[in-house]
């Protein structure tokens, strides 16, 4: 069942700044990118102002294949311990991407009973508002 956002409660929006703007601009265009160092090539997520490997500030946005595996996940089942703007139950996952980085996201359809650690997933883009898109995941073929 798809996640349901409860009307009347504000959506939680990313706080876009100079360091992470490239990521969110790409998401608006339904592209998943990760920060890549122009000097040493290290890919990192979340975005940051400096490459932790070579200290370069020259950054690029490398397209992701959009594929990964569930690393861990939780199931928000109790409204008092979750965000009131999203109908429980909803699942939050940590996905380990093929590029070696991890991202926090949601499963677009699957409920907790359908998912497991190690499950292959692929990115989908959920336009949750006219001006807000979130990268989410669905089950992929093994």
């Amino acid at each position: 069942m798809a996640m349901q956002y409860i009307e009347g409660i504000p959506l939680l929006r990313p706080y876009v700044d100079h360091d992470n703007k490239g990521f969110w601009d790409a998401i608006r265009e339904h592209r998943l990118v990760f920060q890549k160092c122009k000097d040493c090539g290290l890919i990192v997520h979340r975005p940051r102002p400096m490459c932790p490997q070579c200290l370069s500030t020259e950054r690029d946005w490398a397209p992701s294949e959009g594929k990964g595996r569930i690393y861990t996940y939780v199931d928000f089942v109790y409204q008092n311990a979750s965000y009131p703007g999203i109908q429980v139950p909803y699942v939050v996952v940590v996905v380990e991407m093929l590029e070696g980085v991890r991202m926090i996201s949601n499963m677009i359809e699957e409920s907790a009973a359908d998912i497991y650690i190690g499950m292959p997933v692929e990115v989908v883009f959920d336009d949750i508002a006219e001006d807000l898109t979130l990268p989410k995941f669905r089950k992929a073929k093994e």
Binding site: L12, R46, A81, N106, L134
Partner: peptide, 29 residues
């Protein structure tokens, strides 16, 4: 807070309990 609000909260990962649960699931695995 910026990391929390930009990369975690939009997905409903909001509470301390939620973030500890992530680690505990992986530990159990």
């Amino acid at each position: 807070d910026l990391l929390q609000w930009t990369f975690h909260s939009p997905y409903g990962l909001m509470t301390e309990t939620g973030s500890v649960a992530m680690l505990v699931r992986r530990y159990m695995h």
